[in-house]
Nucleic acid binder design. Structure first.
Length: 429
RNA sequence: GGAGGCGUGGCAGAGUGGUCGAAUGUACCGCACUUGAAAUGCGGCAAACCCGAAAGGGUUUCGUAGGUUCGAAUCCUACCGCCUCCGCCA
């Protein structure tokens, strides 16, 4: 949800932001027209209530009684207008930050850098590597749960927990964070991440608060009987933790590291990536989530990206970083970077980049909806926080990247050095 | 799932139909005292919305949603959450 004050005072600016996101700028006018109506009606209602209250205090019961009906009528009108006002307001996406490239779709994302040495040998696709080793069973996944479900087995299952260990140890290490911050010339504080295993089922209003329902409901599993959504990323369960809270300024920035299963219906992607575990309905993911003061969020965003890159470098997987253009941003994001890992076995052994990480700065968009604020020590004022999220690792895709980049001629897969001590073995097969 | 109890400001905790946005304590902020601090004293301290250039004024909010009433933190109903006991259970 965006700032109403900004909408009223500078609608043209918001319209430009909305247009850059390929949404209809008319949404802004729709809101302003309802808002004007609402204001007028609220004023009338307030006046009437004040009158009634005064009459009651003066014990002019009969006259006060007379105001009752009219108040009720106005109340109903205000309620209707409020619903309408809210609905139109929530349709307006978060405008991109000034630094974000204006572009119409993913073709206009900008590659910031390519890191790591891409292997040049004719590489095999991860599925054909994994098949003789019996590490992934999609067939039985299909039998038991349907398409896009699979079993991850044996050493590959153990590798998942090795990745979890690596990330947990890295992000709780303040010294290491300090080093990273220094290396990138950032000015954020080195607070460690707090590991979280969040609920994977969340209430309707919390999912709405995260801004993924207006345009994306089709992607999310919903359990009607209990009114609960299955999260598509742990971000959706972590953001609402502080809904309706006023946080203490010196507890900021708060950094969380969520580990959870993510559920996605993949409703709009029939026929795309149908094989294997690249695009499945269920996968485990380690997700970073930061809550910061507004003036810190752009730096924090760089930190999240720096951590993502650090982790990729630890695993020595080649990747590139994309600066996402305005037209390719989701509703809540004001800025976003993606990391794409190099998968040498894809594209008939010619290799290609595939998205494995994404980090967004949602500024105050989610914080407004969830009503998460902080009290400033100096001014005493209460203000909305900024919220950011970033992938530490989506396990399924990380496993794919490892298998394809660490495959050996003899059909075995070497375990990346950084994971060996956690995995307890150095080689699969 | 069954029985009972409870939900008030950052926290603790009064308040059972108007004089209550809410006593008191504590936390926090400012000032005084002090070399500095502690302690003490004095003052301030909820949020949202509306009107207003401002000063200021108005409205709403005591888990949530309804209801009774001229008027609800206070009475009624439903829901949600927490606690205790019983049942079931990893």
């Amino acid at each position: 949800m965006i700032d109403i004050e900004l909408l009223r005072s500078d609608p043209e600016r918001v319209k430009r932001g909305v247009a850059a996101k390929r949404a209809d700028p008319k949404l802004v006018d729709d809101f302003l027209s309802v808002d004007a109506d609402w204001k007028k009606t609220v004023f009338a209602l307030d006046e009437l209530r004040a009158k009634q209250k005064k009459l009651g205090e003066e014990r002019k019961i009969e006259e006060a009684k007379a105001a009752k009906e009219e108040i009720k009528k106005l109340e109903e009108k205000v309620t209707l207008l409020e619903v309408e006002r809210n609905k139109t307001l929530r349709l307006i996406p978060n405008p991109p930050l000034a630094r974000v490239i204006t572009g119409k779709d993913e073709s206009q994302n900008k590659t910031l850098r390519e890191v790591g040495k891409k292997s040049s040998d004719a590489a095999k696709d991860y599925l054909s590597i994994v098949e003789p080793l019996g590490l992934i069973d999609m067939e039985r996944g299909g039998k038991v749960s349907g398409s896009r479900f699979g079993y991850i087995l044996g050493p590959l299952a153990r590798l998942e927990f090795a990745i979890v260990q690596l990330v947990m140890n890295t992000l709780t290490d303040e010294k290491l964070l300090k080093k990273l911050i220094k290396k990138h010339g950032l000015s954020v504080s080195p607070n460690a991440f707090l590991p979280i295993v969040p609920p994977v089922l969340i209430k309707k209003e919390m999912m709405e608060g995260m801004g993924y329902v207006e345009r994306g409901a089709e992607e999310i599993y919903y359990i009607e009987k209990d009114g609960l959504y299955l999260i598509a990323t742990s971000e959706q369960a972590i953001g609402p933790m502080h809904a309706n809270e006023i946080l203490d300024e010196d507890t900021l920035p708060r950094r969380y590291l969520g580990f959870s299963t993510s559920f996605r219906r993949e409703a709009g992607s029939h026929g795309k990536d149908t094989k294997g575990i690249l695009r499945v309905h269920q996968f485990d993911k380690l997700e970073m989530f930061s809550i910061t003061k507004p003036e810190w969020s752009e730096e924090e965003h760089k930190l999240l990206l720096a951590i993502e890159e650090y982790l990729m470098q630890e695993l020595a997987i080649p990747y590139r970083v994309l600066d996402i253009c305005s037209g390719d941003l989701g509703d809540p994001a004001a800025a976003k970077y993606d990391i794409e890992a190099w998968l040498p076995g894809q594209n008939d052994g010619k290799g290609e980049y595939r998205e494995t990480h994404s980090t967004s700065n949602t500024t105050d968009f989610q914080a407004r909806r969830l009503n998460v604020r902080y009290r400033s020590k100096t001014s005493g004022k209460v203000e909305f926080v900024h919220m950011l999220n970033g992938t530490a690792f989506a396990i399924g895709r990380a496993l794919i990247a490892i298998i394809e980049n660490y495959q050996n001629k003899d059909g075995s897969v070497t375990v990346p050095k950084a994971l060996q001590k956690y995995a307890g073995f150095k080689k699969i097969g």
